[in-house]
Amino acid sequence: MIVRKFQLSRHNKTDRPFRIFAALLHRTLGDFTDQLVFACTMKENVENAILNVHYRPDRPYKEQIISVAPQVKRAWPLKDGIPFDFFDTAAEPPIEMPHGWRENICHYPDIVLTPSNSNFEKMSNFREHAKFTVPDASYWDENLRLKVSSSWFAVIHYRDPTYSFRGPQVDRDFNPQDALPVYDEILNAGGQVVRIGHKGMQPLPKKMGMIDLSEENFFLQTAAISHARFFFEFSPSGPSHLAMPFGCPLLRCNQTTIGNNFSDQVVVMPKRVIRDDGMDETLDFIQSGDFNSRDLGEAKSHRLLPNTPDQLLEGLSLLLRYTKDEGWRKPPCPKIGGQTGKLTFPMDNMLDTRLMI
């Protein structure tokens, strides 16, 4: 009788894909986009990886956002969510699974991503983040050029109190009148102003060069983001989060936090933080991590005021200088280089933000 010790490698075949499953549980447009970008970035940074995602179909934009992420192999819109039993690997699981679930080997992931382990703060663990692309891009580009005739244009957005899913939010809603000097400066510089958003937003001024896409198809709006010289966000809102995966330079004004950014093309202009003595807080205070509108409001130690018209114009001047050689931008390639094939845990939580006050 011979006894021999040996090692059996069953699941380390080089042709076996690394299976990522992302439970996209966020509901707001910005948070949902951020988690999807994280999942796509992990997929792109691991050699021979595949990505399946789940979401609740409770917002119309979720399916649309996933459709601009070519990294996703298959999406599972399950209104009742995903029980842990869906990941049972036994031959006879105790629960009925969706059609095609096991055939796509979704029950056998190597990692499951949830909001807590795939937030924007962990994006710093990757050298680059994933890029999105518009399906049928040539079709939507042609439609966009029928509306935008100038050699360059800026996409703008602000939170409007008419947004049906969350209603008015005093600390984030924006007075459109405060944007008028910025519009004039863009038009005087030879560009056009293209607004994106949701149906029912307050009307734009009737001026030559002002184009409103808020009533238009989602893909026409994302085509605009992908070609814009820059994205000017007047107040915190979800659509600006699409600027980053489309590689569009972004200025975020009137911000109530300094997070939610994972691109070096983003500059953040926080709301004015006013002390009891009536003076503006320092940049050091904001960088210390104590800047959060809800915390400051509860403490009643500070007041938050909107950015002044001069501050908004200074932000625009920065964007114009930074993008001085840009016209209609070429959309980024959705593939990123530098695949390491390895992930390191625990991941760091790190914010890398450019501030402007």
Rank of each mutant, 00 (worst) to 15 (best):
Y183Q: 10
L29F: 09
P109R: 05
T308G: 05
N52R: 10
G167Y: 03
K199Y: 11
T257L: 13
F174M: 08
G297F: 10
P239F: 07
G100M: 05
D31L: 08
K300W: 12
Y55L: 04
F285M: 02
G209A: 10
H11Q: 10
I105R: 14
M279Y: 11
F174E: 09
L187I: 08
R329M: 10
N104V: 03
R56G: 07
K73V: 07
H54S: 02
Y108R: 07
F234T: 08
S116L: 13
N217F: 09
G100V: 01
P331N: 08
V112M: 07
S226Q: 02
P57R: 05
L355P: 06
E233H: 12
G197N: 00
R303P: 14
D276T: 12
G247L: 03
G259C: 01
F230V: 05
S226W: 01
L305A: 15
A90V: 13
F345A: 04
I111F: 06
R321H: 12
A75H: 09
L144D: 01
M201Q: 14
L204K: 06
T33V: 08
L250R: 00
D290E: 14
G278V: 05
I50M: 07
I50P: 06
N104K: 09
G315C: 08
A23Y: 11
C106H: 10
L312W: 06
N261Q: 11
E103C: 12
E314R: 15
F84L: 14
V266Q: 07
Q192H: 07
V72L: 00
A223W: 12
P93Q: 01
T133Y: 00
N188G: 10
I336A: 05
I95M: 09
N292M: 12
I20F: 04
Q71W: 04
L320A: 06
P57K: 00
H99Y: 13
T222Y: 07
F285D: 02
G191C: 06
P205V: 03
P249A: 07
M356T: 03
T257M: 08
V148Q: 01
V37W: 04
P245A: 01
P161G: 15
A243E: 01
F38D: 04
L355V: 02
S116T: 14
P94W: 14
F345V: 04
R56A: 13
A39V: 03
F126A: 02
A299D: 13
N117L: 03
V194W: 01
S151W: 12
L250G: 00
C106P: 07
F84E: 15
S124E: 12
I286Q: 02
Y139T: 10
Q192M: 06
S138I: 03
P83H: 08
V266N: 05
Q255P: 00
F84H: 11
S237K: 11
N254A: 07
F218M: 02
D88E: 02
S263E: 02
I65N: 10
V267I: 15
L220F: 11
N125R: 00
L351V: 08
F132K: 03
R127F: 11
S214Y: 11
E128N: 13
N217Y: 08
R166D: 15
F246A: 02
F345Q: 04
K199E: 15
E63L: 10
F153C: 08
V72T: 02
F232R: 03
T14C: 08
P161C: 15
M269S: 09
V148N: 01
K43C: 06
A154Q: 06
T114H: 14
V46Y: 01
